[in-house]
Design a protein around this nucleic acid. Structure first.
Lengths: 104, 104
DNA sequence: TGATTATATCAGCATATGATTATATAATTG
DNA sequence: CAATTATATAATCATATGCTGATATAATCA
């Protein structure tokens, strides 16, 4: 696949509000699926499917820790995305103001 | 509009193969619509509509020069896109190997 | 082992998006 | 002014995409 097509594939992954917000959240720290569901106030299948796309696109890693699956950023080998990652706003507040801390 | 939504809007514009190729072409030099139609071998309305989106998104400028409308990059004020713009492959060959030079 | 919790997958739906054909507008030129 | 060339817009269609509800899988724990 040529460079431009590969680039559009990466950019497609980032050009969705939910996925880009997930990337912003993971910039703070690794999170499990239920963390993200809780913070973004959407359904679990929705987040699961977005995470699958990000994983297939090589933008995130997953690690199982007993019953939880933690996702983390995997962008260090994509320097051309650095500018975008840097532009993402801080999600510290979102991570702090959790209502449902059931998931940890 | 919040930062993330603004960012996704920019990224949506770049996450289409035709539009990203147009951006790569314009990185070489400004071009008129018929240049781009000729190089990308698609229809004129198709290119026109992509250019309109890029213009509305503030990624390109247009200038009329008598009957031709020239488009040029307008990304210097978006440093977070620099990494992507740098990643675009050279289009020098595409610009040189024009079959139909009717449009100039 | 049965219940619970965390996550993934599937099917369906509604909307968004890119491409095409047809048509309109605008500038140029004979 | 009529014909031509360059570009834009509109209508339509097919496909892609995101979200939801239902269900499956996997791990934990009583």
């Amino acid at each position: 696949m040529d460079t431009i097509e590969a680039l559009t594939d990466s950019l497609k992954l980032l050009s969705d509000k939910t996925r880009l917000t997930i990337m912003a959240l993971l910039k703070e720290r690794e999170l499990c699926v239920c963390d993200i569901v809780d913070i973004l106030e959407t359904t679990q299948p929705n987040i699961s499917q977005h995470l699958r796309k990000l994983k297939l696109g090589g933008l995130v890693n997953e690690t199982r820790k007993s019953q939880w699956i933690y996702y983390s950023l995997n962008v260090s080998d994509k320097p051309y995305l650095q500018g975008i990652m840097d532009q993402l706003p801080s999600m510290k507040e979102k991570l702090a103001n959790r209502t449902n801390q059931s998931c940890n």
